[in-house]
C-alpha cells in the first residue's frame, strides 16, 4: 500500500543511477537491481548507442527519469522542442514519475547547464508552480521536484528554502524528490539545522529520496557525488523515512565512479532503514491466526 498519496512507489525499493561506466557490467551480468534512474537528457537523442542501451535496460529493469535541464524556476519560457523530446522519451521508458530540480539555469535562451538556486520570493513561487503544472499537464505523468544544494542566498528572498518548497508544491500540487544530501550540504553552507528542513516538508508529498556523497572544502561543502554517503546524511535519511514511510530511494554517484558492485552495495545500505520503517509496530493479527 502506498505510504502516502503522492508516494505510490513505496515498494520501489532502492535504485541507482544508470551511468556509462556500468553499461557493460549491467548488460552482461544482469544484476538484480530494484530500479535505475536515468538522466533524461542523455537519452533525448534521435538514435544510436544511447537509445540502444536504454532499450536493452528497459527490457529487464524499471527505469525512472530524472532531468537536469527543465529549470522549473526559470523566468523565461521553456523550449517547446525540449518538452516534445522529453515526452517522446517518457513514452519510451514508461517512467512512472518524472523528477527535475527546483532551480533555474537558463535565461533568454542561454543555458548555464547548472542548477542555480532560486530567490525565495512569492513571485518565484507563482512562476515555478505554474511551470510545474504546465509540464505535468503536457507530460501526463506525475512530476516531482527536487531540492538542490546551494552555495549562495539572495537578498531578495522572502522566506526560507523549506517554506519556499512547501509553497511551490502546494500550489503546483506535486510531489517532492527530497535530496537529503543536498539538504545537508546547504545546511552547512547557510548555517541552518538540516532536521528543521526535513521536519518541515510535507511528509505526504515525498515521492522519492536521493542520497549521495559530498566533499568538504575549507569554507564550504560541495555536492560532488563522488563519495559514499556520509553519516549525517544517513541520519537525515532515517528521519525522512520515519516521517514519510518507505519511499523509493536512489543513490547518486557521478564522479570517480567505482565498480557497479561498490555503488550498489552503498545504495543497499538504505534497506536497513526502509525495513525498519516498513516493520509494523504491532504483530499483525492475520499472521497470528494462520
Amino acid at each position: 500500500m502506498p505510504a502516502n498519496r503522492f508516494n505510490s512507489f513505496t515498494e520501489y525499493g532502492v535504485g541507482i543511477g544508470l551511468r556509462i561506466p556500468h553499461y557493460h557490467h549491467i548488460l552482461s551480468e544482469k544484476p538484480v537491481v530494484d530500479w535505475f534512474e536515468i538522466i533524461s537528457e542523455n537519452y533525448m537523442v534521435d538514435g544510436g548507442r544511447p537509445l540502444q542501451v536504454l532499450d536493452q535496460i528497459l527490457e529487464q529493469y524499471n527505469v525512472v527519469q530524472h532531468g537536469v535541464s527543465m529549470y522549473f524556476g526559470s523566468a523565461s519560457n521553456p523550449d517547446p522542442e525540449h518538452l516534445k523530446k522529453l515526452k517522446r522519451l517518457v513514452k519510451r521508458t514508461k517512467t512512472p514519475w518524472l523528477s527535475d530540480h527546483l532551480c533555474w539555469g537558463s535565461v533568454d535562451g542561454r543555458y548555464t547547464h547548472d542548477l542555480l538556486p532560486m530567490p525565495y520570493t512569492w513571485e518565484a513561487v507563482k512562476i515555478t508552480a505554474d511551470r510545474i503544472r504546465n509540464v505535468q499537464d503536457f507530460l501526463e505523468i506525475p512530476v516531482v521536484v527536487e531540492n538542490v544544494s546551494s552555495y549562495a542566498e539572495y537578498h531578495a528572498s522572502e522566506m526560507t528554502e523549506w517554506e519556499f518548497i512547501n509553497e511551490v508544491v502546494e500550489k503546483a500540487d506535486c510531489g517532492i524528490l527530497l535530496d537529503v544530501n543536498n539538504i545537508y550540504v546547504s545546511s552547512q553552507n547557510h548555517n541552518f539545522d538540516p532536521f528543521t528542513y526535513v521536519n518541515a516538508v510535507p511528509a505526504d508529498r515525498i515521492a522519492q529520496i536521493h542520497i549521495a556523497g559530498h566533499s568538504k572544502f575549507e569554507k564550504y561543502i560541495l555536492d560532488t557525488h563522488d563519495h559514499p554517503v556520509l553519516e549525517p546524511v544517513w541520519q537525515l535519511y532515517a528521519r525522512t523515512i520515519e516521517r514519510a514511510g518507505p519511499t523509493a530511494t536512489l543513490l547518486e554517484w557521478d564522479d570517480n565512479i567505482p565498480s557497479f558492485e561498490e555503488v550498489h552495495a552503498e545504495a543497499l545500505k538504505a534497506n536497513q532503514f526502509l525495513q525498519a520503517a516498513a516493520k509494523p509496530a504491532v504483530p499483525q493479527l492475520t499472521e497470528v491466526a494462520r
Binding site: 551511468r19 556509462i20 561506466p21 538522466i39 537528457e41 542523455n42 530524472h66 537536469v68 535541464s69 530540480h101 547547464h113 542548477l115 544544494s149 549521495a212 566533499s215 572544502f217 560541495l222 555536492d223 560532488t224 557525488h225 563522488d226 547518486e252 557521478d254 564522479d255 565512479i257
Partner: peptide
C-alpha cells in the same frame, strides 16, 4: 577517456 554526458553534480 570519456565521461558520462549530463549529470547533476558539482565540480570545483
Amino acid at each position: 577517456g570519456s565521461s558520462d554526458g549530463s549529470s547533476n553534480n558539482a565540480s570545483i
